[in-house]
Write a protein that binds this DNA or RNA. Structure first.
Lengths: 234, 234
DNA sequence: CAGTGGTCTAGACCACTGG
DNA sequence: CAGTGGTCTAGACCACTGG
């Protein structure tokens, strides 16, 4: 399409200008740019909006448009343990420690948004990276959302993959709370560290694209091997 | 201004429509809405863009505009300690424990992106919420970026505010690393908890809109009073 | 095909800044 | 004050969908 080509040319032309200018440089005015690229000023502005959103430039009313240094912020994304470890260049694996069906108490029921007393599958796994213990994870999923769920499938697999393949459930967002705590003797033993070592505890409530709460998980990470990293914008 | 009122009315009118409709409902067409609210279609579209960005509605070319169930994900934003505590409904304050000018070693120089050996101001503050100790914070800023900097101004103020007012520096993004650790006896004493209590340690490197690294800060939060909360999307 | 959202235009007036 | 970005308008044509 002619239109797409035009948009593309505009975008690339602007990026070239940004590169030539370097951080701090001032761009020509919007009226001049729109004439130069032969587009309406509003069209140009929409393109500048995008570039500003991406942090490549800054506009200041009455003063002008200035090139920014691109930010290095790493966006937080919802990753499974397996995905995250692979991204960190490590090979993930799991050991299924225990699984049982329990009846949801008031607190858990609220977290999973189910009625108190409904059946919940609780899965406790030791999660390894390069065959070294990394975290101790307890996941809870409501049985009603996962008919015929078989925890045995989790011995070496990702819960997220299973949810997707078997139930067509894609997790879309999660709420995470991060605390610092110390490990009990049992927990420390499983993770292979000294008792009362510090630990990063992450509680996560994951929600499907339909808005249903699918999983509540509580993970204890070894503080000596794991850091939580996040980029934030103002 | 008439213009602001108009925009405000439009926004509120649309939100009312969204509420009345409920998730899944289909809004009237853009042409009809623009007529009803007496604005140009482009103006209406800009408002719809915002609402879509916020996840309140979804548009589908050729089909229509539909009300979404609002997401509950809380976006991570770069907040100063003061801003964050106020948002949590607590009154922030600070006690300046120490400040000194040091020469940047290799590690600090790399973090601040300055040449090793340059002067760096190091500020150590006890940060309180409702007059209770909450965190122990050590901030480092390169002197070259803040000529004539006076740490005394920080006794009861926000560093971010000072940077903005005095130097016109707005922080735009930050990279944060979150660890779990235990407090030394000194640190525990200052924070008013038992020695070797667990602590959430947050290291933050903040960058200005021009892409310069402005601050490196290391904070030790009381694990019993502070949790880091974050929403993530897939 | 009628109707929807997506994009673009030329022009106007406003708020803000100090090159 | 001239010049900048911010907002809005009325209208056009496009791509896509199936109420």
């Amino acid at each position: 399409m002619n239109r797409i080509q035009k948009r593309e040319r505009l975008r690339q032309g602007l990026q070239t200008l940004l590169e030539q200018g370097g951080a701090g440089a001032r761009l020509p005015s919007e009226r001049e740019l729109s004439e130069r690229f032969d587009v309406a000023r509003e069209t140009l502005r929409r393109c500048l909006d995008e570039l500003e959103e991406e942090g490549l430039l800054q506009r200041k009313q009455g003063a002008g448009t200035f090139v920014s240094a691109p930010p290095v912020v790493k966006e937080a994304r919802l990753l499974s343990f397996s995905e995250e470890m692979r991204e960190r260049g490590m090979e993930p694996s799991s050991r299924l420690l225990r699984h049982q069906t329990v009846l949801a108490g008031a607190k858990l029921a609220q977290r999973l948004m189910v009625t108190p007393g409904s059946a919940v599958i609780e899965i406790r796994r030791l999660r390894l990276a390069n065959n070294e213990p990394m975290a101790l994870e307890t996941s809870c999923v409501a049985l009603s959302r996962l008919p015929g769920f078989d925890p045995a499938a989790l011995v070496n697999g990702s819960l997220y993959e299973l949810l997707d393949k078997k139930y067509g459930l894609q997790l879309r967002s999660a709420q995470q709370q991060i605390h610092a705590t110390v490990l009990s003797e049992d927990e420390a033993g499983l993770l292979g560290v000294a008792p009362f070592s510090p630990s990063l505890m992450i509680e996560r409530t994951s929600t499907s694209s339909k808005g249903e709460v699918i999983e509540y998980a509580k993970s204890l990470y070894r503080a000596d091997r794991y850091r939580f990293e996040i980029g934030v914008m103002r």
